[in-house]
Design a protein around this nucleic acid. Structure first.
Lengths: 234, 234
DNA sequence: CGGGAGGTTGAGTAGTATCAAATGAAGTGG
DNA sequence: CCACTTCATTTGATACTACTCAACCTCCCG
């Protein structure tokens, strides 16, 4: 939407990348980034889909993507989001298995393609990079495990409150305390793992209880402490 | 229980380890294993608990462990099992964060402790090992993601059928088609993410439908095809 | 034989899903 | 600028899954 969607040059890419991976030499950076591999992707664009056999992964320079699995009735389950500095799709890039998730643009994004070969080469050359990659994967795994426990044990009400807190952590609040991310009710439901109608009802309960305010897709976080209590977040 | 619980020597350990990690030199193997680091652990023994700061990880030579998180009311959520050839606890060993899961013996086990330093050293020295470790973690992550989607979207009935199929995959069937793993009803419930009573009722439904037979904790898989259909497994 | 852990069964109910329909918002083409 | 389409959101009514609580049973072990 806004027009800071100018393409980055290699240096800018490298700078952004270095926020996540601190142990690369400039030679290795040069190996990694080619401006021509960058793409501007509009909301709704699918980057890769479940079952694709990937030839590489993607580095997110700007924008927001959702990573999700598609359940039996075609219902999406959002696994996580990716934003500036994140890498998506390296799982299947490395293991040469078909992708087990799909990825779609939520806010117009600039992503940079990284071929499998390059990725593998970096792992071979740079143990620090490997270690960083392992740690990153482990962190994701830890979050996934927490998520499993939550979905299995918490009520929809608790999970929704928790998801709002996660969104606050991940995307932050504007000056007026509104979440810096705009999701449809359906997308919220697909994070929480519930029906769209349930999200709507619960959001309006939260509003009546003075925890949040709602204006369309803008959600204003009013009472963080109570929300955390409802969500069982400590 | 049975008396093949004799301690392995270094060679046997190495052989078992090589099933999982194929790219280690014998020097590196020697670095890895010291017989004195082996332990025989009885059912019920806790290997590490959520919140522990680990000084290393554990290689499972024999037996079965469960890896789980503890939810709000103290209810366990079983994340996965570990058996011969698996490694547990390397997440916190590498990231130096407190463990985010606990681990407990289900069938008497022999495990071998691997200090963090050794693990890190191997990653530094051997890129193939790194790659293998990354792939392993990624695979686990893929399974976790599937699990999230399942719990969020499937009914308890579907999930129980699916769990039975997973147990069949992981632990196999005896000659008489009984699952080669003995779990309490509560442990089954803690995998599925439901109440113990629900598991009991559904198991007995499955029995009435001719899908399984039950004798105490022995579960005999009678109709694989129908079970897969019920579980939405293809 | 008593105690404890695990297993089973029944009844009642809260929490959510599902279905249907109305309303609102955003964009398109005449 | 308005009619029209489409998609997202909201609300209401109803059905049902699965949880909770309570009682009782069963087996095993000392």
């Amino acid at each position: 939407m806004n027009q800071n969607q100018t393409f980055p040059n290699c240096d800018q890419l490298a700078e952004c990348f270095a926020k996540t991976f601190k142990h690369l030499s400039s030679d290795q950076m040069n190996l990694l980034f080619w401006e021509e591999e960058c793409e501007l992707l509009k909301r709704g664009k699918v980057i890769y889909a479940e079952g694709d056999s990937a030839r590489g992964c993607y580095f997110v320079y700007s924008g927001v993507l959702k990573v999700f699995k598609t359940g039996l009735e075609g219902k999406e389950q959002i696994i996580r989001f990716a934003k500036s500095g994140d890498i998506i799709g390296f799982r299947s890039a490395l293991s040469q298995e078909p992708a087990c998730t799909s990825s779609k643009v939520i806010e117009d994004a600039i992503v940079c393609f990284i071929p499998s070969d390059t990725l593998t080469k970096l792992i071979q050359q740079n143990p620090d990079f490997s270690l960083e990659l392992i740690k990153m994967t482990c962190k994701e795994l830890g979050q996934a495990n927490s998520y499993i426990t939550d979905i299995a044990q918490k009520s929809v009400r608790e999970r929704l409150a928790e998801v709002l807190m996660q969104l606050m952590e991940t995307f932050g609040l504007a000056q007026d305390n509104t979440l810096q991310i705009s999701l449809t009710r359906e997308e919220l439901a697909n994070m929480v793992g519930t029906a769209t109608e349930s999200v709507i009802r619960l959001l309006s309960e939260f509003k009546n209880d003075g925890l949040i305010e709602i204006k369309g897709r803008k959600i204003k976080i009013v009472d963080v402490r109570s929300l955390k209590r409802v969500g069982g977040v400590y």
